[in-house]
Design a protein around this nucleic acid. Sequence first.
DNA 1: AGCACGCCGACT
DNA 2: GTCGGCGTGCTC
Length: 737
Amino acid sequence: MKDDSESLFGELFDTPRRAVVPVLVPMPAPTAYSYAVPDGLTIEPGAIVQVPLGPRQVIGVVWDGGEDTSVDPKKLREITKVFDCPPLDQDMRTFLDWVAAYTLSPPGYVARMALRAPAALDPDPMIEGLRYAGYEPERLTPARQKVLEIAADGLSWTKSGLAHASGVSTSVIDGLVKQGVFEQVFLPPPPLVAAPDPDYAESRLAGPQKEAAEEILQSLSKGGFHVSLIDGVTGSGKTEVYFEAIAETLKQGKQVLILLPEIALTANFLERFQDRFGSKPGEWHSDLATRTREKVWRQVATGEIRVVAGARSALFLPFENLGLIIVDEEHDPAFKQEDRVFYNARDMAVVRARIAGFPVVLVSATPSVESQVNCIAGRYTRIHLPTRFADAAMPDLHLIDMRRAPPERGGFLSPILLRSVGKAVERGEQALLFLNRRGYAPLTLCRVCGHRFQCPQCSSWLVEHRFRGQIQCHQCGYHEPTPNACPECGTLDHLVACGPGVERIAEEVEKHFPDARTLVLSSDIGGVKRLRLELEAIANGEADIVIGTQLVAKGHNFPLMTLVGIIDADIGLSNGDPRAAERTFQLLSQVTGRAGRTGRKSLGLLQTFQPQHPVMQAIISGDAAAFYEREILERERAQLPPFGRLVSIIVSADSRAEAEGHARGLRQAAPHESGIMILGPAEAPLALIRGRHRFRLLVHGRRNSDMQAFVRSMLERGPKERRSIQVQVDVDPQSFL
DNA sequence: AGCACGCCGACT
DNA sequence: GTCGGCGTGCTC
């Protein structure tokens, strides 16, 4: 610490210049800020520091590069402190720089993602322990005798632990400490999770699984960067295969990261891991308790935690010696972050591995189109698992053409589907009816004047939720109690619900099967706890007919389910999203995969108005390869990813017309061949900013450098204009290697 | 991102 | 007379 007179002295006279280092601070500045290094301190790049920034103290990280001479030396402030934790290594810094450049995000924001556990930056306080020092006490009482017997092993004990084990009070120990019989030692805090044992359980792979595992192990043994894609249907043993890759990496003494979509980070997954490795992996996700989060961060940094299973943000943990990343459910859109720094953790995982020179394994039953393309192009190695484990057969899948087998008036379930549900229930088996639409009805209108209930904030339809007695906007969260009079013409009781949601399907099911036990699973009914209980009840056979939204598609297995009915398989095929077909294919594959894991004969029925649609044909034929091939050609024709690069810019605007004006401006500003397509507000993942809508403009071009230059020019407009346009960049990466 | 400063409308 | 809304600008 310098006192005032000394710094005054420093300004008046020409003292040796202080060392200055660049520091990334959690702020959207385009470059690092410069800070003075306090006298007598040496600071290396990667060091995590606390620095003054305006009126507050923030956490930053010392970056690479020389001194920035453009900054006025009088403005320089000193680093407040250096945290006692491992610095971010060169690979990590290269990675963070790369991500910032690629996603066009301020580097300080990207760095902040790696520093998400502030209090973890100082080491956990040591635990005080006692160790037998080898002396006899002056007077050996029976109580002291007992303590010495226990402590004679020379291991360290906590005071209370030793007292408890010896069956004496702590004051006995105090007496012994006073006499110097015990010496005080400081122990590091116990690890959060035990080290996984690669040989804990014998791998019990056979057939194609064994071959796949061997193929992966072979590429692992070659060392260096390499990407594999394990592609196999639900139940084909993908997890068991990549567990072998994890075991091998652990044997090499390196750490492993398993990335999972948040929703798949279940107790079930952790238990499977434990069955194989004898202990659970470290967990990392958004609702980790602060304290736990800090411990995990630190123990990952020091290398104590060997395996982390985490959501996308785990990719930015500062591993001490990372040697493998697994990305399970590789296709899942949850890997894409769409605020602040826009990134896809799957792609950035590949980048991190390339920089540090280790392998990545992508895993999915329904790989993303871009990963398929990367396999075809030879950048990734595809490992295909064609069959299910053991005797679990795939369900028999059929389309129900709704034009030929329409439901009865006022209903939504085809007689064919109803008959099958009836049979399943009679046999004492379970049926799952899937409809990806929450609530009772997606649209309500007045039969008298035709008024449609619309969200006053964002103009999408208000969805009726009978269970809650509300009409809700699924876009911005607006809701009001369900009215019984039309706000337009005032007529009472002439409001009519249009179209089905899961609640309405439940109503129809209960009418047809009054004696069956029916259960609705929807994300808006009850919390996580209730959901977990309900899933357990279903697994125990406590329901006959389950009606669910998207959340039944993920992760959970229903061993008694022998019938899956999909109510409106066409939902999502025509919403303007360039990934509509891909997403629908993935969703339908997942849902139909919920059936038929028991070895019993099982059935999947898909109600559709477009039985000839390529997605429907691909689902029933099981010919995923043909579907992907077609999808790739379609995108090539539209110049969409994976062949071009897609950047979407979110603009705030009062109306679609204003958004179109911005789009015209962009089109003129774009110096290269590009297309601009407006999605929104109904389609964009929007939130309302002060009464303005957010529109997403999809801009696509073939050349990475053009896109980057274009987006930079957008971002470099003056602060005034930037505020009115509110540009946010969303990079959907393709040729990122 | 935070945070302060500064400028105009409704209130103890 | 002040409190507090948010528009604007700055942080090494």
